[in-house]
Design a protein around this nucleic acid. Sequence first.
DNA 1: CATAAATGATTGAACAATCATTCGTGAATA
DNA 2: TATTCACGAATGATTGTTCAATCATTTATG
Lengths: 200, 200
Amino acid sequence: MPLSEQQILNMKKKRETILEAATSLFATEGYEATTIKKISEAANVSFGSVFTYFKDKEELFYTAVVEPLKELSDRILDFNPDPMDPVAELEKMIAVHIKLFAGINQYLTLVVQVVGQHQRYADIFEKLDTFHDEFLEKVSILIQNGQKKGLLIQQEPLPVATLYTSLLIGIRLNNTDTLYSNMLDHYVPAALQLFGPKNK
Amino acid sequence: MPLSEQQILNMKKKRETILEAATSLFATEGYEATTIKKISEAANVSFGSVFTYFKDKEELFYTAVVEPLKELSDRILDFNPDPMDPVAELEKMIAVHIKLFAGINQYLTLVVQVVGQHQRYADIFEKLDTFHDEFLEKVSILIQNGQKKGLLIQQEPLPVATLYTSLLIGIRLNNTDTLYSNMLDHYVPAALQLFGPKNK
DNA sequence: CATAAATGATTGAACAATCATTCGTGAATA
DNA sequence: TATTCACGAATGATTGTTCAATCATTTATG
């Protein structure tokens, strides 16, 4: 009576297919304009099947935003807040972030949607906000350590960190075409300036 | 047979009321979730009246985004790209921009919606994009002049300008609560660092 | 001044379309 | 045979838009 492993695997794949189709549509057309019918067609799945894997449309959107967050946050927070060379660490961190953010354009569109209307997506927003606070905190510590070592100019760390995350999410809104990978190399040193490196 | 001036004035006011209610709802609930019924109720206007002043829902949204753009762009572009003291001009410009952007939170939510789904709002996006290009160009010139005078470090001006506008729009997404006017004073000098001022 | 005609805004019921969700039936697997 | 997924027609609710009737205001006429 229980499902075979093969079947469970197929279902996992199917769930993933639906989720990917939904994410893509949510990003390009928005939550309300994305219909279950469209999702099912994009995923090559019957209409009813969508409801087999997701309770309702809301859960589908929730999953599309929250589920990738775990892995993403690990990658985003993957830097040393107390390194030997804070400026070099900053540079490495910025390069990672900008490249990472460039590759998850679609996902970021969802994030922008949630943040832009955080009252409407209150529970999702809370998850994002919690991570954001963690992110800010860790960047602030790195800034502080750079300042202690005399390698960064004295500034309030938190506003600088906040501007940095603003900049990261803002890049997404500024670069709608795909040809912005060309500019990535220029972005890193420019973004570094935000932190006020002293060596010139 | 023509309308009296008083009547025309009343209609202008009514149109404005509807537009404001619509803007507010579009910002907090999104385009699709905002119904004409909600708008008419929020504006204290009959359902049918909305269609007297706006052809359809789309025109209402279009107007809400495009109409304020003219005045806003004037204020945003109100800085001297070739001043005596480029760093002082930058500082002044940044302060104006950050304060301005802080005060039009609701409008920026609409902008974010349009940019986040630019394929869907193609005609509106084009207007925003045209202004954005103009903005980038003027900031780039200011940067160039600062560099020529030896007051800013050498960087590609365009990526720096792009990061600056990213930062401006990104701040909106980072600060959802109202208490961020406290931080404005810290933001200005931090944002200035982006341009690489040499005096330290 | 009084009245009528004309113009054009105001209104909300009616309409057709679309949507999310439910659910009964069929198919497949263990 | 029992269980569970797959399916899509049916349902009920909601939407944007249309439109015919109503109302207010202004102008023309006596």
